[in-house]
């Protein structure tokens, strides 16, 4: 069902967006008067820095030469996966930090997104059949309230509830900090995996609680309009069995806007995951970004922004391609 033209257009978007993200990374430090990265280094090393050392730093940060030379140098470094060296975690390279942290974030993001979509769609298919009833208004009200909460605030509340209030033998029911406990060996062993899942429960729960209402409400509202579509009226007239009417005629159509929204929502869930990582000291790239921000570690900030943008854009791209399998009409546009 994929046509070459469709794929080509999506690829064009992918490249264009990456180009903009890279440009932001390149121009931002160079447009701000008094490059903050240099300022940070100067204040950190006081006036002991020699002009030679300064030049060395400048070439490290691709700040020497004309703007064009800088741009070329920057792009070359980028294609070699070289994102510079972290100020704060010196001498660790930015790419090595991100490589270590990104899987944790992707784990949080992926699980939270998948669970949210499944939960949202299931809830909507359940209440979609009872529109206007008590269940409907109750579920809608709860969804809207949850959706309106700031994610980190909810994270703090759940941290208090599960870490400090629901206490068994002096220990909270769930761990509310870090990605795994210190007494397991990192690696593909059962104890480690169990520890990781146990530690991720509350962070993922927080993200799901904030994210699923969007999908549920979107699909519920879609159902409420689809129910008046001619093809649903015809399906009723056909005397189809109820499950078929719901599954093939209502849900199959109502989930389409949800599929479209996953891509956009993913970008929002990224923001949520970053804040949640700060709350739960969960060492994904969000936690590193927070640390980088508080320590003015500009190379790390830039690197994380670029990598997460690439991740989201690629995720969007994949969702777009998958969408064409859900909706046969998509190739027409």
């Amino acid at each position: 069902m994929l046509t070459l033209r469709y794929v080509r257009r999506r690829v064009l978007y992918l490249v264009l967006t990456l180009f903009v993200a890279i440009s932001i990374n390149f121009f931002l430090p160079r447009l701000i008067p008094g490059n903050p990265a240099i300022t940070v280094l100067l204040t950190r090393y006081g006036n002991h820095i020699t002009p030679q050392e300064l030049r060395l730093v400048e070439s490290q940060l691709n700040l020497s030469g004309t703007l064009w030379q800088q741009y070329v140098g920057y792009m070359v470094a980028l294609f070699h996966g070289n994102l510079g060296v972290s100020f704060y975690f010196y001498p660790a390279s930015v790419s090595s930090i991100i490589a270590g942290a990104l899987p944790w974030t992707l784990f949080l993001l992926g699980s939270a997104t998948v669970i949210s979509v499944i939960l949202g769609v299931s809830i909507a298919s359940f209440i979609g059949w009872r529109l206007g009833g008590k269940t409907d208004s109750m579920v809608s009200t709860i969804s809207i309230s949850l959706q309106s909460l700031p994610v980190f605030w909810l994270g703090l509340i759940l941290q208090i509830v599960f870490g400090l209030m629901v206490v068994i033998n002096g220990v909270g029911l769930f761990p509310v900090a870090h990605a795994f406990s210190t007494n397991v060996t990192v690696g593909p062993n059962l104890a480690f995996i169990a520890s990781v899942l146990y530690h991720s429960a509350i962070p993922i729960l927080t993200l799901v609680l904030i994210s699923f209402p969007g999908f549920a409400l979107l699909m519920r509202n879609t159902i409420s309009t689809i129910i008046n579509e001619d093809y649903v009226m015809m399906a009723r007239a056909k005397g189809l069995k109820t499950w078929r009417l719901k599954k093939m005629y209502i849900n199959k159509n109502a989930r389409l806007p949800v599929a479209t929204s996953v891509a956009l929502a993913f970008g929002n869930i990224v923001g949520g995951a970053f804040l949640i990582e700060e709350v739960f000291s969960y060492k994904g790239i969000g936690w590193y970004l927070y640390t980088a921000v508080t320590t003015s570690d500009f190379p790390l900030i830039d690197g994380i922004f670029l990598v997460i943008t690439i991740t989201v854009v690629i995720a969007n791209f994949i969702v777009d391609l998958l969408y064409s399998f859900l909706d046969p009409r998509v190739m027409l546009e």
């Binding site: 970008g267 804040l275 900030i301 943008t309 989201v312 854009v313």
Partner: peptide, 23 residues
């Protein structure tokens, strides 16, 4: 409109963070 599309795709919070860090 392409600019609008791109702005809608770049994840909002990280973009906010990087801009805030420099200003």
């Amino acid at each position: 409109m392409r600019l609008v599309d791109i702005l809608l795709v770049i994840p909002g919070f990280p973009l906010l963070v990087i801009l805030s860090a420099y200003l």
